[in-house]
């Protein structure tokens, strides 16, 4: 039941173990987990352990782990990272929801899906630079508006939180739309129609029936986008300017300029911890326990 929460947000009916039968402690299906689990432990768990070990070295764990909160620059980077991620999450949902709705309702799903897949095949590096060309003072938007005589001075669209939010929303939009679409596709449209037949106006039927049923998709899209946004650093560096530093940039500076792997690892683990805290808080709403804890308390 790994993903129901991320993708649909509800705990599905247990499909194995008929009522009345004693559930065995282990069944044959369990064996299928082993190859993937062993692979992940070796290919990913081992590198992570290397990082964890380093976070305790150097000037000691206490110093390394407190530095994120005691250094003003890192503290504001942490706050800024959270703010940017939140802004990106909200805009992905607001912009992605109508698109996912159209996908779920339309017969042209294939074309709409193509639009989602087109950018994810293009390197995110190129997409970031393309956004710079759209947003800079002499870029597409400002040049056009100036030529039309709508504005005199260029709008400040880049090197601030607005710029980084626009760019990252563009990059992360597919990760919001797909879970939303998966949930919306499964909503029984007869329910909305029934509400309308019972006299509800279409907008009311949509708000009272469709939206609540789609909420699990909203929560899962929000969590996915938020967590992915926390780790971004190239897009914020190029589009975000100085007012929206990220903790990832701090880590990269520590690693590449100061060669301080110990503090960098600790800051990185702190960022991971923040991601986990956010997921845990999110679980209050989405029962993310089902994702990460398999229903454990």
């Amino acid at each position: 039941m790994v993903d129901q929460v991320v993708l649909t947000g509800h705990r599905p009916a247990t499909s194995v173990g008929r009522p009345g039968l004693r559930r065995p402690r282990v069944n044959g299906w369990a064996l299928l987990v082993l190859p993937g689990l062993i692979f992940t432990l070796i290919a990913f768990g081992w590198p992570l352990a290397e990082v964890l070990v380093r976070s305790f070295g150097g000037e000691g764990a206490a110093h390394n782990y407190s530095v994120t909160f005691t250094t003003p620059a890192y503290r504001s980077a942490l706050v800024s990272t959270l703010l940017t991620s939140a802004a990106v999450t909200v805009s992905c949902l607001v912009i992605g929801y109508p698109y996912a709705y159209l996908m779920a309702m339309s017969r042209r799903t294939e074309l709409l899906l193509a639009l989602i897949l087109l950018p994810i095949w293009t390197s995110f590096l190129v997409r970031t630079y393309a956004w710079q060309i759209w947003l800079q003072d002499t870029g597409v938007i400002n040049t056009t508006l100036q030529k039309l005589g709508i504005i005199d001075d260029p709008l400040e669209l880049i090197r601030n939180r607005l710029g980084v939010t626009i760019g990252m929303t563009g990059i992360l939009l597919p990760f919001a739309i797909l879970p939303l679409y998966t949930v919306m596709r499964r909503i029984d449209r007869e329910l909305v129609r029934a509400a309308e037949n019972l006299g509800a106006r279409p907008s009311v039927a949509f708000r009272r029936v469709f939206v609540p049923l789609s909420l699990p998709g909203v929560y899962s899209a929000a969590l996915l986008v938020f967590v992915l946004a926390l780790g971004f650093y190239i897009a914020p560096a190029i589009l975000g300017g100085t007012s929206s530093p990220t903790l990832s940039t701090v880590i990269v500076d520590k690693v590449q300029r100061e060669l301080d792997f110990h503090t960098a690892s600790a800051i990185g683990i702190t960022l991971l911890a923040v991601a986990i805290v956010v997921l845990t808080l999110g679980s209050r709403v989405v029962r993310i326990r089902d994702v990460f804890g398999g229903g454990a308390p």
Binding site: R25, V33, P47, I251, I276
Partner: peptide
């Protein structure tokens, strides 16, 4: 395996299997 399997420690296995998606990538390079 996760959807249909029954075995002790399943929640831990799930957490491990999903961790690559949530660990910040800048850490993983080194």
């Amino acid at each position: 395996g996760l959807a249909r399997g029954i075995f002790p420690g399943k929640s831990v296995a799930q957490a491990i299997l999903l961790s690559p998606a949530i660990v910040p990538i800048v850490l993983i390079g080194i």
